[in-house]
């Protein structure tokens, strides 16, 4: 599904987020991505979902070189990759139904998309997806009225509607309380197993990763330092990995909303 050959990413401000990654992820694999904050996990996921481009090396997504993806082709590739984010990244003022139906946008024309905002189209798909995540009764509620855990499940429902070949999740449980975390991870893993989807999840929580993923990747300061089964590293080794002082993550979080005042 993904082949990385010497992939590196340096941001415009000079911050080196990833260097010289060699990696291959086969279709249907379940992979957990581990590492301290600032290790490059988010950047790697944003490369895999074709939001960013590598500044060095070669990344192929389903056999297509990401450097040569533009316009329509780029949209087609993005449609086959679903992403779940730490902060859910839903549109807060939209109703749940529209956030879930947004999963269709890769297939819908601009007209259909606009029409659906006035009169929801393919409503049955949204209902089915919300049923799957246990939120069928929230269909018409405004998204910002939901709790964090519920919003993350709405985000998963959006991926269900999108029906991609790959699901990427960037710290999907870091903003939730620990009691909810395992439920969300299990939901994602079951989904990937049942529907034969590739799953790449970045996690802070080592025990969860060891319990649910046959393959672990560990990043440290933008380098791949471990790639293998959970048994390959002792608990003490994982401890040492995370003990590393976290690097400033400024470049990774650079797309946070700026605060501005408007002159009248």
């Amino acid at each position: 599904m993904f082949v990385l050959e010497g992939v590196g990413k340096t941001f415009a401000n000079g911050f080196v987020a990833l260097r010289d990654l060699h990696l291959r992820i086969a279709p249907g694999e379940r992979v957990a991505l581990l590492g301290p904050s600032g290790a490059g996990k988010t950047t790697l996921l944003r490369l895999l979902n074709a939001t960013l481009r590598p500044t060095a090396g070669r990344l192929t997504i389903a056999g297509l070189d990401s450097r040569h993806l533009h316009g329509k082709r780029l949209r087609q590739v993005r449609r086959t990759i679903g992403t779940i984010y730490q902060q859910y990244n839903l549109v807060p003022r939209l109703r749940v139904v529209h956030n879930v139906l947004a999963g269709h946008l890769g297939r819908w024309s601009g007209w259909r998309a606009a029409l659906s905002l006035l009169h929801p189209l393919q409503l049955d798909t949204a209902v089915a997806a919300l049923q799957h995540v246990g939120l069928a009764d929230r269909l018409w509620q405004r998204t910002d009225q939901l709790s964090g855990g519920e919003q993350q499940r709405v985000a998963i429902a959006r991926v269900l509607v999108q029906d991609p070949a790959v699901i990427l999740a960037d710290e999907p449980v870091a903003s939730l309380d620990p009691g909810l975390a395992e439920g969300i991870v299990r939901l994602l893993v079951d989904l990937a197993v049942q529907r034969q989807k590739t799953l790449v999840v970045s996690l802070h929580h080592v025990p969860l990763a060891r319990a649910y993923f046959p393959r672990l990747l560990a990043l440290q300061q933008g380098r791949l330092v471990y790639d293998g089964p959970p048994q390959g590293l002792s608990a003490a080794a994982w401890q040492a990995l995370f003990a590393e002082a976290p690097l400033p993550a400024a470049a990774e979080r650079a797309h946070v909303r700026p605060v501005t005042a408007f002159p009248l």
């Binding site: 993005r78 946008l105 998309a113």
Partner: peptide, 17 residues
């Protein structure tokens, strides 16, 4: 807030969408 927009773009939405 650009993060929801980036998420839409990442699932294949066009500029208009």
């Amino acid at each position: 807030d650009r993060r929801p927009c980036e998420a839409l773009q990442a699932l294949g939405a066009s500029r208009l969408q």
